[in-house]
Each structure stands twice: as C-alpha cells, then as structure tokens.
Simulated assay, not measured.
Amino acid sequence: MKFATGTTVKNFDDYAAWLDVAADCGYAMLTTGDSQSLWADPYVSLAFAAQRTTTQRLGITVSNPKTRHPAVAASAASALQHISGGRFVLGIASGDSALRNIGVRPGTVDETETYVRTVRALTRGGHATWQGTDLVQRWAPSRTPVWMAAEGPRTLRAAGRSADGVILSNSLTREAYTRNLAHIAEGAAEAGRTLADLEIWCMANVVPAATEAEGIAQVRSVLAGTANHVFRFTTEGKGLPPALVPKVEELKRRYDSTHHASPETAAHNAALVDELGLTAWLAGHSTVAGPIEYCADRLAEIEEAGIHNLVVAQFVPDPIAFMRTFADKVVSRLA
C-alpha cells in the first residue's frame, strides 16, 4: 500500500517544517487543495514544496473548472512539472468550497470532463477547444497527469473515459469500492481503456486515538464536509441507505462552507453529523480511528479489499506528531 498525505497551507514557515517531516516519513505524494478563500494558492504552495523536496510526487487534490481557465491551469501545471522534475499531478472536481465562498456554481459533469480533457491535451502539446475558442500552449508544455475526483455514477464513468486517475471519497468499504470501480471501468471501456490505464486513490481519515469513538470525534467536521461534497448534487447511486437521505439533505442545507476543512473552527459542522445521526455511517466509509494496533488492522483489511493507494488526511491537532506516529507505528505494522 502507498500513502500520500496533505495539508492546507496558511503559514509558509509552518509548511516548510511540515514538508521536511513529511519527506522524512516516506510519504509517496504530498498534496494540498485549491480553495482560495480558506488557504494559500496551491500552485504557489507546491512550487515552494518542489524546491524543498526531491522525490515525492506533488498533487493538487483538487482544483475546479471555474476559478482557473484551462489554459491558465495547463500553463501553471507545466511550470510545476519543470520546477519539480515531472513530479506534479493535477486533480480536478466540479468545485466545492472554492466556489461556494465566492458565489459561483459548481461545474456540471460535462463541463468538468471537458475541462479535464482540455488541460490534459494542452500539457501534452496538443490543441483543444474550450467554449468555442481554440487553445494551444505555445511555451514548453509538460505532460501532466490529470485526475478527477468522482463520487456518483456519471462522474465516475466520465473519469474512466477521460482522466489519468481517479480520487475517491467514502470508498473504504469493500462494497463501495467495488461499486465505484465498476462505474470507472464502464467509462474506461467506452474510451477503449481498462482500469489498468488509470491510477486510483482513496481519501481516508486516519486518527490514532485511545478509542475508535474518540478518534472519530476529532474528525466529525471533516465527515460533515465530505458528506456535503459527496452528496451535493444527488444521493442516488452512492450507496446511501434510504433512511439517511433526508438527514443528508438537512446537513447540506445547514452546512457552513466558510469553515470547510477547518476542524479547529467548525464546531457547527461537527455537531451536525451527531445531531442528524450520520456519524457512524460516514465514519465507516471514510475513517480509520482508534488504537495503533486497530488502525493497522483496519488498513490491512482495506488493502485486502483491493485498495492500494490512500491519501491520508491530517485533520488532527498536531500534524507533525501524527506523521511520525503514522509512519513509525502504523505503517511499520503493515510491512
């Protein structure tokens, strides 16, 4: 199993220290997100990371088709490839907090897929058409893997058709992962490809704690944010039990995007999942929490289900200590 991990950058002195520890702990990929109202620009952050690391892949998980024209994204991606020596990966989704916080609607499935195709073509030196305009990058394009974050059947099939990889949320159960892979495979087949042509990564909260309940309690706001994102357009085809559908709809109505991905300030969002009775189901699909031995056993079960690439979130009080604990005490037990 390979592990990636990420952070949201708000202070570059802190980020430098974070990068040094993350590199020392052996993570395969280091990521950040794209939400301009909540943290630093991801291209700037990863350019900084490229200068401070040597071997780790660097990924944006994820950007969107609305705040950056595809020609702008392709140019920035090529620049990062040059700076990093080809280590950069660009993830794209329809858009969540980055758009909610500036009053812009998310991209549709078709818009997002077209955006992925366009950026992918431009970084490969090809021509593309975006909203009726012919595009080409006339300065040193650099081939960039473009991934899609996908949850529902339509988006999963689009990712299978058009992306180089897929980022999955709420997929840590065997049933959910198998269902999602089937949709990706359908899309890949439409483009004459197979699952072997795509890189699949799953998002996961891993929280070492005295008990599973204590660990889950630390990431309740993250569970709320994941649910708000995964089910923001529809609950259909995503494995949600019918009894939980009205509860998720209520969560979406009351979710506060100004504190998305900020556990330290998101008490309102954290309280929602408990109040609505969603905590257990959401945690079961996205979170590994509890004593070290239990976390290692759960990760081994997840690997047995076929999941081999995990992006480990760091919504914990002390990210530096978490990275060392995870590498030294959890990952070492999987060897």
Results as ranks from 00 to 15, higher is better:
Val222Glu: 07
Phe88Cys: 10
Ala267Gln: 14
Thr7Glu: 07
Arg161Thr: 11
Ala176Ile: 10
Val245Lys: 06
Val206Leu: 04
Ala213Met: 03
Ser75Ile: 10
Arg298Tyr: 08
Gly306Pro: 10
Glu303His: 12
Arg157Phe: 04
Ala149Lys: 00
Val104Phe: 02
Lys247His: 15
Arg68Thr: 12
Ile102Val: 15
Ala289Phe: 02
Glu111Asp: 14
Val207Ser: 04
Lys10Ser: 11
Arg154Leu: 06
Ala17Arg: 12
Cys295Leu: 00
His82Leu: 08
Thr32Ala: 03
Val316Gly: 13
Arg220Ser: 11
Ser78Gly: 08
Asp41Met: 03
Leu30Ala: 01
Thr108Arg: 01
Asn269Ala: 06
Tyr255Leu: 13
Trp201Tyr: 13
His285Thr: 13
Ser162Asn: 06
Val222Asn: 09
Ala79His: 13
Gly225Asp: 13
Pro106Val: 06
Gly306Asp: 07
Ile102Asp: 03
Ala50Trp: 02
Phe48His: 13
Arg117Phe: 04
Ala49Asp: 02
Gln137Leu: 15
Ala4Arg: 05
His285Phe: 09
Phe326Thr: 00
Asn228Pro: 09
Leu172Asp: 12
Val166Arg: 06
Thr287Phe: 04
Arg154His: 02
Phe315Ala: 13
Thr287Met: 01
Asp34Ala: 00
Ala98Val: 05
Phe88Gln: 08
Ala73His: 11
Leu272Met: 13
Gly33Tyr: 10
Leu19Ser: 01
Pro145Gln: 01
Val245Arg: 14
Ala210Asn: 06
Ser262Lys: 15
Asp134Met: 06
Ala300Arg: 15
Val222Arg: 14
Val146Thr: 09
Val89Asn: 05
Val9His: 07
Leu251Lys: 00
His69Ala: 05
Ser97Leu: 01
Ala73Phe: 11
Pro141His: 07
Asn11Phe: 11
His229Arg: 08
Ala243Cys: 04
Trp39Arg: 04
Gln218Lys: 09
Leu46Asn: 04
Thr55Phe: 05
Asn101Ser: 09
Thr133Gln: 14
Val273Gln: 08
Phe3Arg: 01
Glu236Phe: 03
Ala22Tyr: 00
Gly237His: 07
Glu304Asn: 13
Lys238Ile: 11
Arg68Lys: 14
Pro317Asp: 11
Ser63Asp: 09
His69Phe: 10
Ala267Gly: 12
Ala280Arg: 12
